[in-house]
Design a protein around this nucleic acid. Structure first.
Lengths: 243, 243
DNA sequence: CGGGCACTTGATAGTAATCAAGTCCGGTGG
DNA sequence: CCACCGGACTTGATTACTATCAAGTGCCCG
């Protein structure tokens, strides 16, 4: 199965972890029984990336579905003026590379680790077999794709109607839902992105993001804790800026 | 050419046309054999809408997949300042309502006929049965959803990087691919939307769309023919404004 | 031929990008 | 433990661009 001892170690851990990590975490495998999970586990390879490392480059032809097991990554396109437009932030349980499961497809974006990240990889050919023997997986992927469509559609709505405040609110609410933890005075959000990253996510200048967040702080809607944390104090007020 | 008797005619035609119109036109049924097509045909209902009629309202709970057989529709969200942000234009062979095939889902947008439109409707419960007996359909839908994700991701990129020219170019190229016909001097595009519609599609003021298109005409990249047609003379030049 | 509507074009104002200093924070080394 | 350094962030001033407001113009249809 494998050669070097270190690798055997990792892999053998993985034999167990396949159920816990890659498979159980991920909604697309949630309907599988133990036997099926084991089957899936056999097809999975693992890999680690350090912060800043590229998992995939825009335009690169990839051959596999990648599932984030631990850590998080950003998927971004490079615009003609050299900026990066972040499209997705993928965290534990999210996947990418689904486009080329069915046909050959160049990656539409760069994917870069935002921190130490551990991924599970399933090769296209294995996945195609898998999807045929367990059709329910295709349905689960469809569900996930629909959720992404939802988010992108909403993003386009706020980007189109162009009230900058709404864009900032939307991203803060998104982060609150995804990364927020209960706190006596509200919700504590660990930001996955720097100010510049947030700006690149919602198509603004980093200074503008700073300014708008300062205003939200003055209004008592949130409190900035250092640069990487935000305490959301008044969620309903923040939601008002949306609709 | 049409009136009441014609309508009866149409309906009875449909028993036959199910194979030709709804099913053969649509990529999601492209892998089906004749027998399967017939099975699908039996599940389909038809309906016509006049220009301006709403097929679905934002927030409404729908129960079926709708396939455009003839005509076209726009899917749009109403923003808090009363504007409409158009997200999709669906034409012959496109479908919507896929979100609620799997779970109960309120429509994320209004859908309105841009012209006389004829649709095929499959109820959720029938579709769920269909998808189980012919799993390949789920795969086809996945493909289509991936294409939509592609487009939305590109839209977000251009909306984010905020060069207004690029937005106009992108929409013109999209229309050229979708509705363009060969012409001795380039590509003739029948615009599905008015200037205001285009503006609502790419998040600009209608005046801005006018101005940018006038500039493109001055530059010799295109020629406006009345209000509803555009002759694209220099496609490669238009593409340069993107990347 | 005339009326209405969509579109174009012009002038103005508002808002965010850009340019430019500062300031804060975390990390490092003395 | 403290002082210093660098990078990220904030804040301010200016500029650039598009939305908005306001006339016109042209096209399509009766």
């Amino acid at each position: 199965m494998v050669n070097t001892t270190a690798k055997i170690n990792t892999i053998s851990n993985c034999k167990k972890c396949n159920h816990k990590l890659c498979t159980q975490k991920v909604s697309i495998f949630s309907s599988l029984n133990m036997e099926q999970l084991a089957k899936v586990g056999d097809l999975i390879n693992h890999r680690r990336y350090k912060k800043g490392e590229l998992l995939v480059m825009e335009g690169e032809k990839t051959e596999s579905l990648v599932i984030i097991n631990e850590g998080q990554v950003k998927a971004y396109k490079t615009t003609l003026d050299g900026k990066e437009q972040i499209i997705y932030i993928f965290s534990e349980g999210d996947f990418f590379g689904e486009r080329n499961l069915l046909r050959d497809y160049a990656s539409p974006y760069n994917v870069e680790a935002l921190e130490e990240t551990h991924v599970c990889i399933i090769h296209k050919r294995d996945f195609q077999i898998l999807i045929k023997s367990i059709p329910d997986i295709a349905v689960k992927i469809m569900e996930e794709l629909c959720m992404r469509l939802d988010r992108l559609e909403n993003t386009i709505e706020t980007m189109g109607s162009r009230t900058v405040e709404a864009r900032v609110s939307l991203v803060l609410l998104e982060f609150a839902d995804k990364y927020g933890k209960p706190h006596p005075r509200g919700t504590l959000i660990e930001l996955p992105l720097s100010r510049e990253g947030i700006a690149n996510y919602i198509g603004l200048a980093r200074e503008t993001v700073s300014r708008k967040m300062s205003i939200l702080q003055e209004e008592g809607i949130l409190e900035m804790i250092g640069n990487k944390k935000v305490l959301l104090l008044n969620r309903s007020e923040l939601e008002k800026t949306l609709k």
